[in-house]
């Protein structure tokens, strides 16, 4: 067998790698540092303080935007994960049917559609519905988020299902488990890490979304990201940095969960 191409031994590899990391992380680091700025500028250091965290925590708009964000993310993650689980089971536990490939692509296609296109499309649809029904609650945002989160939840669940031996379900059936019990006692526990990963990915994706939310929301329906966008457009203070820092912490913690669960529950 040929040796692998020794990419790390190429001239300049180290330089490129380090530059890439700097470009990726330096802005993030600066933003985080300025969250602790005592001054009012997000660019001029005025000493260390936690005042912007305090100010964010006391800002009624931030609080309600945070609550809305979490609520929206939780509901749409639960819905999209349920749908994605059903879709993944259907795709891997039924014999290949006509249009299998079409269904497969249809489920993950939204990942490839530019978000702005989806956003405009959803804007038109929701506006029309609003006109017809007069309803202007959270429902539109929930539906929109659920829809674009499905493929994110779907991918890890499907990956997990593919590593699962289908003869385990057959063995459960052989041992007096009804189809429902086989699902409950064998498929579900084995699939759980995939479902959890799907849920967290969907949750983070929803939490993070700006474009679609911005188009679909009505007045007073600011999520944390759209609130931050609004703030940045006006006056920029380190309060935004403080919010961003907390936001980042939550996202990282959630993604770490996936990693830990995957490590703990490796099949084999």
């Amino acid at each position: 067998m040929a040796k692998a191409f020794p990419v790390t031994h190429q001239r300049g590899f180290g330089t490129v790698a380090i530059t890439t990391f700097i470009f990726l992380y330096a802005p993030l680091a600066v933003a985080l540092v300025f969250a602790f700025n005592a001054g009012t500028s997000p660019a001029k250091w005025g000493g260390f303080s936690l005042r912007w965290f305090q100010s964010a925590a006391n800002n009624q708009q931030v609080i309600s935007a945070s609550i809305l964000s979490l609520k929206l993310a939780a509901i749409s993650a639960i819905l999209s994960t349920t749908l994605a689980t059903l879709a993944a089971l259907a795709m891997s536990r039924t014999p290949r049917f006509r249009g299998w490939t079409l269904a497969y692509s249809a489920i993950s296609f939204p990942l490839m559609v530019p978000e702005i296109v989806t956003a405009v499309a959803l804007l038109v649809v929701t506006a029309t519905f609003r006109g017809w029904t007069g309803y202007s609650g959270l429902g539109y945002l929930v539906l929109a988020h659920t829809a674009f989160c499905v493929p994110f939840a779907y991918l890890p669940i499907r990956a997990r299902l593919q590593t699962m031996d289908i003869s385990l379900e057959r063995a459960a059936g052989d041992l007096y488990a009804s189809p429902w019990n086989a699902f409950r006692f064998v498929t579900m526990p084995l699939l759980f890490p995939g479902i959890l990963a799907g849920f967290i990915l969907a949750f983070v994706t929803s939490l993070d979304d700006v474009v679609i939310t911005e188009f679909v929301k009505t007045a007073g329906q600011d999520t944390l990201p759209t609130y931050m966008l609004g703030q940045v457009r006006r006056t920029i203070t380190p309060e935004v940095n403080a919010i961003a820092a907390v936001f980042l912490l939550i996202s990282v913690a959630l993604v770490m969960c996936i990693y830990v669960v995957n490590q703990r529950t490796k099949i084999n």
């Binding site: 031996d165 003869s167 385990l168 057959r170 063995a171 459960a172 052989d174 041992l175 064998v186 526990p189 084995l190 529950t265 099949i267 084999n268």
Partner: peptide
């Protein structure tokens, strides 16, 4: 009952 060729033991 069946003893499967690949055993099919429940890993969890």
């Amino acid at each position: 009952n069946t003893v499967f060729q690949n055993y099919a033991l429940f890993p969890h």
